[in-house]
């Protein structure tokens, strides 16, 4: 409880910081732009409030580095040195593992699936295993950076990510409720 509270406060602080950075860079935005700005800054703040100790937070920051402006925000929130280091680490990982072997793996999987479809007889155990595998794949897609994890670390990261997301949702909802009356009045 204490832990989640401190996490929320830290996230809130960092989020506000990121939003201020956005504000200084760009004055006039459309609604969608604003929305993406808010979301990106929230994500980066969440990742940085986890102190980049977990893999998903590193993956979030690495993903944000693709966009120029969000990279700027990430630099502002995190501090430049840490951000660069994280990006280096995760970029290295991505370039090494995914770009080179992703296509090959996909192709081989396709072939394998075709072959597997041919012999239809399956035990219940294999069906259950396939169900679990399917869901694990979906979960990999959901948790940032989940493609590169083994199962145990995937579950751990999911735990951490879920608690962090919960904190994020709470803070955002709190802000929405706090902001609403002032805007309507």
């Amino acid at each position: 409880m204490q832990n989640s509270n401190s996490l929320k406060q830290e996230f809130f602080k960092k989020w506000m910081m990121g939003l201020q950075i956005y504000t200084t860079t760009n004055e006039n935005m459309t609604v969608t732009e604003r929305k993406t700005a808010i979301k990106l800054s929230a994500d980066i703040a969440l990742a940085s409030s986890r102190n980049c100790a977990t893999r998903w937070s590193r993956a979030v920051i690495a993903r944000s580095s693709v966009d120029n402006r969000s990279c700027f925000v990430a630099n502002g929130v995190l501090g430049r040195g840490l951000c660069e280091r994280v990006k280096q680490i995760s970029n290295l990982k991505i370039t090494r593992s995914s770009w080179s072997s992703g296509k090959i793996v996909k192709r081989s999987r396709r072939v394998w699936r075709r072959r597997r479809r041919r012999n239809k007889c399956m035990a219940a155990v294999t069906i259950a295993r396939r169900l679990v595998q399917k869901r694990t794949k979906v979960l990999r897609g959901l948790v940032p950076g989940g493609e590169f994890m083994d199962e145990i670390s995937l579950i751990e990261e999911t735990l951490d990510y879920m608690s962090a997301l919960q904190a994020q949702v709470d803070v955002m909802r709190f802000l929405a409720t706090a902001y609403n009356p002032s805007s309507s009045s």
């Binding site: 604003r34 929305k35 700005a37 808010i38 979301k39 929230a42 929405a176 902001y179 609403n180 805007s183």
Partner: peptide, 9 residues
């Protein structure tokens, strides 16, 4: 929520 915050202000 981000959409909403963007829409509100």
């Amino acid at each position: 929520l981000s959409m909403r915050l963007a829409a509100v202000n």
